[in-house]
């Protein structure tokens, strides 16, 4: 009997964040330009498994997806005593930069989705020179809230069920059933209060209205891609954000929702391949006719 082994490998790196050591799990595949992928709130790096396993992308990119602390296989730090988890802009930024530094990545591309898309904007504002390109999926400077996050973590409501049920509506109806269920499974497996803690960054601490105008895309190119079925970060939210940033590239993705890379990997590939191709071309200007 033969088994199929996927090409990505997983390892742990010990990273100091905010004065405490964190054991961060990451998976990677490929060689070339570092491409760091950030998962959505309340989920983990498994959302990127199709991109990680993409043979064509892996020829030119070192694709890396890590689990944020408290998510997936990255535990809370050893000094955690049970306090409520709360992600802040400063902590999120520090985590990404510390991870990239620990792996000694040379001007990586960072691609993030949802909260990952929001923090990408913050990286573009404050740390653009450190990155080769930034890609925000389902990203905007702000979006109107549509539910009360206190429902996400209370003893009389099942946390996994409510988190998955809430985000289920953000998946496009065209997405394959298996991919839909896998995307929701990530939410059902999240630790108690983690999705809610991530949304502190999204809802309270990470409002970038009035700041994105400072982004200089000549220092670091910025791509914003949003699914047409995302009613949390709507296409209008992304287009409004992009309109305030000179040189930002924006694309609305048909038949996709809030989780493009996991809810419908094939459809997402149609949109992300040209972006990665352009980044590659810009990185190797002498190389002509590059296709990914």
């Amino acid at each position: 009997m033969n088994g199929t082994i996927e090409p990505m490998v997983g390892r742990y790196v010990h990273v100091e964040i905010d004065g405490a050591m964190h054991r961060i799990y990451f998976e990677e595949n490929g060689a070339g330009i570092p491409l760091v992928c950030l998962h959505t709130a309340g989920s983990d790096g498994r959302q990127w498994r199709h991109l990680l396993a993409d043979e064509e992308f892996a020829k030119n990119f070192r694709i890396i997806a890590f689990d944020m602390p408290w998510h997936g296989k990255s535990n809370p730090p050893a000094n955690w005593r049970g306090e409520e988890y709360q992600l802040t802009t400063a902590r999120y930024t520090q985590t990404i930069r510390a991870f990239c530094g620990a792996l000694k990545l040379d001007k990586p591309v960072v691609m993030g989705c949802s909260i990952g898309g929001r923090i990408v904007l913050n990286l573009a504002i404050d740390h653009a020179a450190e990155f080769r390109a930034l890609v925000g999926l389902e990203a905007a400077d702000f979006q109107a809230p549509w539910y009360d996050t206190t429902w996400l973590n209370r003893p009389d409501v099942h946390g996994g069920e409510i988190c998955a049920a809430l985000v289920s509506g953000l998946i496009a109806p065209q997405s394959p059933q298996a991919s839909r269920m896998e995307t929701l499974w990530g939410y059902k497996q999240g630790g108690p209060g983690v999705f809610k803690g991530d949304l502190y960054f999204y809802r309270v601490d990470g409002d970038l209205r009035g700041r994105v105008e400072a982004i200089d895309t000549k220092v670091c190119p910025l791509y914003l891609l949003t699914g047409e079925y995302d009613f949390s970060c709507t296409p209008e939210d992304t287009k409004r954000t992009a309109a305030a940033i000179g040189g930002a590239r924006v694309e609305i993705m048909e038949q996709l929702g809030h989780f493009p890379m996991s809810e419908n990997p094939e459809q997402f590939r149609r949109y992300i391949a040209p972006v990665l191709g352009e980044i590659l071309t810009q990185s190797i200007p002498t190389r002509q006719g590059v296709h990914v």
Binding site: W146, Y147, W151, I162, G169, L170, A172, Y229, F231, P235
Partner: peptide, 26 residues
């Protein structure tokens, strides 16, 4: 898009959710 989920409808103002929401949310 925007008409495909119960909470998408409340967000766009096409639906109203009222009362004790616990049984609905649970």
């Amino acid at each position: 898009p925007g008409w495909h989920d119960l909470l998408a409808l409340t967000k766009r103002g096409e639906a109203v959710l009222e009362g004790d929401l616990h049984p609905f949310m649970a």
